[in-house]
Each structure stands twice: as C-alpha cells, then as structure tokens.
C-alpha cells in the first residue's frame, strides 16, 4: 500500500494542478477540491500507515496497547478537512457570485470586472 498510495496522491495532485490552470471557473473549483483531498491523504500517509486499531483507549485500560494508528496526524487531517471545506464553500459561493456579476464562466473575462 505504501507504493500504491503515493501514486494515487500524485494523480490527485497532478489532476488538481491541471484543473487549477484552466480558464473555466468550474474546473478551477474541481481543481481546488482535488488539491485538498491530495493534501489530506499526504499528511495521513506521511505518518505511516497502520492496519491496527483506531487510537481509542478501551474502557478498561488507561492507555493504548498493541498496534494502533498514530492519533496526531489524524487530528491534523481532521482540522485540514474542516478548513478545506470552509475554503471550498467560500470558493463555491464566490464562483456563483462572480458568474452572476460577469455572466461568464471564462476567467479571462473577469480581468475587466474589477474596474
């Protein structure tokens, strides 16, 4: 899996890059989404994969025992997911508003819209 996931992350990231360079605003939105998925997976993978249990301490113990996943990167990714969502929601709203203002889905026609 350590050889498979990097390829998948690379594909997500590459697709995100390509989409972010498009003139069509919807494609740019899709690119941002792929970016944030790739970033989350990157953090998750970089800490090392583990098929072990979730880092939840059983009711009868004071600490974790045996193989378990590292909780810290999970906490980081959790934050990243939520922030990514916030950014995305804002971007989606912005795109809608921009489309309403300019009547165009072509980013190049936006250049004159702030004058």
């Amino acid at each position: 899996m350590e050889n498979l996931l990097p390829i998948a992350i690379g594909i997500l990231f590459g697709c995100g890059c390509y989409l972010c360079m498009r003139r069509n605003i919807v494609r740019v939105l899709l690119g941002i989404m792929l970016f944030s998925q790739a970033a989350n997976l990157l953090i998750f993978t970089a800490a090392g994969l583990s098929t072990g249990k979730a880092p939840i301490i059983p009711g009868d113990a004071l600490t974790l025992s045996g193989a378990h996943a590292d909780p810290l990167p999970q906490a980081l990714v959790l934050t990243a997911i939520v922030i990514g969502f916030a950014v995305l929601a804002f971007a989606i709203a912005l795109v809608l508003r921009a489309y309403h203002k300019t009547g165009s889905d072509d980013l190049d026609t936006f250049r004159k819209s702030d004058q």
Binding site: I7, I9, F13, G14, C17, L42, T45
Partner: peptide, 13 residues
Amino acid sequence: AGLAMTLVVWKSV
C-alpha cells in the same frame, strides 16, 4: 508536478 509529488510521498513514507 504529479510525478514530483508521488516521489516525495514515496520517499517520505
């Protein structure tokens, strides 16, 4: 860019 990312992750894991 995707290739660079793949290799970085590959190395980092």
